[in-house]
Amino acid sequence: MTTVTLYALCGVILFGIGFYGVIICRHLLRKVMALNLMGTGVFLILIALARRTPGDRPDPVPHAMVLTGIVVAVSATALALALLRRLHRETEIGDLPHDAK
């Protein structure tokens, strides 16, 4: 097992944990965090696999992609939090009606 696969597998596990969290966690804030974890997992996989180049310089294209992805993730997080705040303002609840209780 190489470093690449190690990190990639770590990414997979993070992805799994994140997905599990998005679904299972009740509080929306935690769901948002879980979403970020999921994203990080994907990014980790991308970057790890980008390192399989023969030389020591990794493939820059996934790096650029991940940068883009990070920005998207932060945007989504920000929007989610804005929604959460507004929802909290209106109702004071932190989870969605049909979540597992």
């Binding site: 990014f43 990794p58 991940v66």
Partner: peptide
């Protein structure tokens, strides 16, 4: 981890 994966930008 990013640094370890030669991704300083990230």
């Amino acid at each position: 981890a990013w640094a370890r994966l030669d991704a300083p930008d990230i």
